[in-house]
Amino acid sequence: MTLLDVQHLTKSFGGLVANKDISFVVAQGELLGIIGPNGAGKTTLFNSIAGAHPIDSGKVIFDGRDITALKSHQIARLGLTRTFQIYAASGDLTVKENVMVGCFMKTGSRSVAAALADRILQEFEIEHLARSLVGELPIAAQKRVVMATAMGTEPKLLLLDEVAAGLTPHEVDGIIATIRFIHKDLGVTVILIEHVMEMVMNVCHRVLVLDYGEKIAEGQPREVVKDPGVIKAYLGERYAREHTTGTPVRSEFPKP
């Protein structure tokens, strides 16, 4: 079943076309990756889908409903939640309070929200941080809090914008486990934007490649990385060589 259907989406800023006639579908239960060089329009695509800004033309159908003209909070309430690439969590709220903000989307009752937050903290293995201020945690833990908060809204579709950026390989493994948990155990469809190729290769069922606002490739991760256009635009010759010769590529790939 199709959960998200993006049709000919175009968004420009002044003369710059950040999303150019992009179409793709995401099936229920899928885990889709979006890759592309800096400034390719990946974050803009999330903004366009999630209603953060009006789009120039095209259509977004979510769960059988046209959400193109809806505002972002309305879209969130329909079950489409996104996280932000640059989001330094506030120093004001504790971890549990942050997660509760998410939980309050579905309930007005404080005790229900608190109970749900407790469960989510446990699932994300951050219950020991419940009373810490988010701003004081290391980045990896903050990212986990951001994902836990998003899960408080009990989404059907979760958009994750570079949750593994800036983490050590070990921390990336932790984030991968968390994403698998969200996807498999909680049954949430996920779209993730990522520069960390290891994550894309190991986690995603399917990958979409953007370059200069356009979709230049789409397919299984193993095939997409062999695509000459993708290698030229994004991965570079070195990645292709190392990848096909089996040399491990662990670290975040150098951004072109």
Binding site: R77, T81, F84, G152, T153
Partner: peptide
């Protein structure tokens, strides 16, 4: 922006 994304 974040508040909106959480349905507020």
């Amino acid at each position: 922006e974040v508040a909106r994304s959480l349905g507020i």
